[in-house]
Write a protein that binds this DNA or RNA. Structure first.
Lengths: 169, 169
DNA sequence: GTGAAGTGTTGCGGAATGCAACAGACAAGA
DNA sequence: TCTTGTCTGTTGCATTCCGCAACACTTCAC
């Protein structure tokens, strides 16, 4: 009994987007649990912050908070821990507001290690997919994410583009 | 361990699956934050538990814990809260081990309400997708999830099949 | 220079989670 | 039937993540 509270889309959309929502919920819940179980040196939260810095070099604490809809205090505390661990540091060129961030050498190492482990799980799941299907799925996911980025995009011009997506449709 | 259909993973696979992983991390983080912000009556955790009971009527506490890789104590506590709220109850027919669960009337109402709100966010994001693209994306996500279900499948015979997926290829 | 706005930090409390220990229920065998 | 082992659920305790509010510091605009 889904409530078909469709915005204005075609009648088809309701069930399909409901399925997408349910699937995303499962992915979220299962993903964080998987990351928790795999005994990584960094938590899922830390990992996502590192990932953001990788994608947006020179970003500041506030940018991370906006990207993940987190309170500034939360990011501040997480970053404090990461800097104490020596995986993140503030760049020297503090031109403008805030303090740009970047990964340290060990930061890259930790990031690559965690990504490698988690990617193993994903690879395993995608084992019986064709390359084309994988590429298409990756493309759709990135499209979904950039779309979901929404209005929070008042960013620095230095940063890398939000997603390198291309590949086949 | 997997069937050897594709294990060699062509050189393409690495980057693509890495993109998928990164996209999924972002989706997870952003999704839970979105759910937190939308002031739902139920938390994301509660919501996912309700969703599991919807998909697997008569399931027990342990089943939920296994599905989401959570500790039994965590699920126990969450369920205690949900039963106190009157959205979940134990079924009367306690044949066998454990105590089968089901949603109450207000449980269905709360579930539908939350799904409706969250679906609004998803619908908005998918605004400029064609129906076919949405359907394909939904299908890929469900395929990914069922594949990721993995080996944790020591299930009761009563329950509904793990996922109703079918639809278009 | 002064005021306004942006940025980061800290105190406080709440929610979610894991681990370990425990109690009750069920199943299989003597 | 009784006993023993296993499964299921619960509770105490600690930890992590998070938000809100208040604060200090910096940067910008006038």
């Amino acid at each position: 009994m889904r409530s078909e509270s469709n915005t204005g889309t075609t009648p088809e959309r309701g069930p399909a987007t409901a399925d997408i929502l349910r699937a995303l919920i499962v992915i979220s819940r299962r993903g964080v649990a998987d990351a928790r179980i795999a005994n990584l040196s960094l938590s899922m939260t830390d990992q996502s912050i590192l990932g953001y810095i990788v994608d947006h070099p020179g970003c500041r604490s506030t940018d991370i908070a906006q990207a993940f809809r987190l309170n500034r205090s939360t990011v501040s505390r997480q970053l404090a821990g990461l800097m104490k661990l020596g995986v993140v540091r503030e760049t020297t060129d503090a031109s403008g507001r805030g303090r740009p961030l970047e990964l340290t050498g060990s930061g890259w190492a930790a990031y690559d290690e965690a990504i490698g482990i988690l990617q193993g799980v994903v690879d395993e799941t995608l084992d019986d997919w064709t390359d084309a299907e994988v590429a298409r799925f990756a493309h759709d996911l990135q499209r979904f994410n950039t779309g979901a980025a929404g209005e929070t995009r008042p960013r620095h011009p230095i940063e890398a583009p939000d997603a390198p997506l291309d590949k086949a449709p």
